[in-house]
Design a protein around this nucleic acid. Structure first.
Lengths: 262, 262
DNA sequence: GTCTTCAAGTCCTCTTTAGGAGTTGCGAAG
DNA sequence: CTTCGCAACTCCTAAAGAGGACTTGAAGAC
């Protein structure tokens, strides 16, 4: 015999899946459910907690419990488009000639970058290994959040690293004021004679920490997508590394690989 | 003034982050913690529940509460390698000539595919749209799980679709017995004169449903990665579509894009 | 020596009780 | 008519207690 709170959760879950309880609908109050199922309120709450953790419902203090809207992942991060736009060969000059601007390539139309911070930090083990430099090497660290103009919640927390000695000659890179970097990081690197060869992206997912949940306004029952973007130059050196945290409930990443080219 | 259970969770979380409570360590019993923090057992349990949902601890009935091992995502799915291996131009013939076998290209060394199931289904709206066919079109649906020989838990739940009429001429494709398809799906498609052009991968993440959690043996506090792989042929037609569910706690996907080629 | 049983320790389920805190709408006061 | 305050409704925090279920190791039976 299954546990009471599980049976109740199963029952409600079925109702939601069947569309009997449509998105946005308010569930009966906990006390009503307790009566209805002949169980105590804490047991009902236990059942609802399960459903909340699955992302099926959302509780609002003082208002009620609601079937969650599918928060259709409208926002998408198509990174290849980013790269096409930013690719190192295109100097800002050429970009102007072709009429391409910073904001005409889809994703970035309504972007806002704000709360950018700039630091010099000593490389922790993790990052140092990726760069292939000794632990403690001085890095340029930039952190910022990105969001769409129409939304209040940011859709990315970004921490980006460069080896300071590698980029020290370009003062624009070391100036916190102009964010985002004009023409994109990759273009800036090109002005240093660093030519990018390939970008590697490592994707994982896990539940958010409380800090991440707060910054990204992640409701209970959503996951965090972690993207580590590593840029290699033509000598096989790692020149830039970004750790990007994305809200799982409104992010959809697309990667395209053309088979012709391989 | 913060809530008691939050303060307790914060305290323990700090101890874990500081390494004071190393991975694998057993926490004091709930009753001890209750004494220690001067709170009731339910309050302690509430605090521990928070940490469990964050993936920091793991509770074992009858044994205790343990700091979770970082389950270092050893398993990685480098999809480009898959494609390289499987790419449509290489017939099985040529593969044999070059000495390449199904199992020598990294990922698949220790793979086991089991519990493969084969169905014909009518396309639901979702899938039909992706294929660009009317709803209800007959599809070949294959579902299977993949796991490493060394692990008991599967590391992928796969559901793969093909339009039946498009592949009906190759009997091997319609035979449930030989799984996985010899030479890979893409090679099989090549024998039908279907030449793949590109593959698009759409990645999202969310908490698992109870069914998914059970099948993938996902502990509480882990996320599910959803990968939809869409294969296009040289005419821009969608020829295959796979929905892949991956355990977030032991999956790390790598995508590489070479900038030279764009 | 091996096996079984059992007790102690652990987390789990469920109840009852008490009060706190956020939200909403209605009615009274201005 | 507008504003304010309050009552009713909601979910949230916290406690105490009784019994259940799982794990482990040690004592006893064979």
């Amino acid at each position: 015999m299954a546990k009471a709170y599980e049976r109740i959760a199963d029952d409600i879950r079925e109702q939601i899946r069947a569309g009997q309880l449509p998105p946005g609908e308010r569930l009966p109050a906990e006390t009503s459910l307790a009566d209805q199922y002949g169980r105590s309120v804490p047991t009902i709450r236990e059942a609802l907690r399960l459903l909340r953790d699955e992302g099926l419902i959302e509780k609002q203090h003082g208002r009620g419990t609601f079937v969650r809207q599918a928060r259709t992942a409208v926002l998408r991060t198509n990174l290849r488009h980013q790269w096409e736009k930013d690719r190192a060969r295109e100097t800002e000059q050429r970009r102007a000639e072709t009429g391409a601007t910073e904001h005409d390539t889809g994703l970035t139309v309504n972007d806002l970058v704000f709360h950018a911070a700039y630091h010099e930090v000593k490389a922790p083990k993790d990052i140092a290994e990726a760069f292939g430099v000794p632990e403690g090497t001085v890095l340029v660290e930039r952190t910022y959040r990105t969001r769409y103009a129409a939304e209040r919640a940011p859709f990315a927390l970004v921490t980006s690293y460069l080896v300071r000695d590698m980029v020290a000659e370009n003062p624009a890179l070391l100036d916190a004021a102009n964010e985002p970097w004009p023409g994109g990081t990759q273009n800036q690197l090109f002005t240093l004679g660093i030519e990018l060869d390939r970008i590697e992206e490592r994707v994982t997912a896990r539940p958010p920490t409380p800090e991440e949940a707060e910054e990204l306004e992640l409701p209970h029952g959503t996951a965090l997508i972690l993207l580590r973007k590593t840029s290699y130059d033509t000598n096989g050196r790692v020149v830039e590394l970004s750790d990007i945290a994305l809200p799982g409930d409104r992010t959809e990443m697309t990667f395209t690989t053309s088979l012709e080219r391989w």
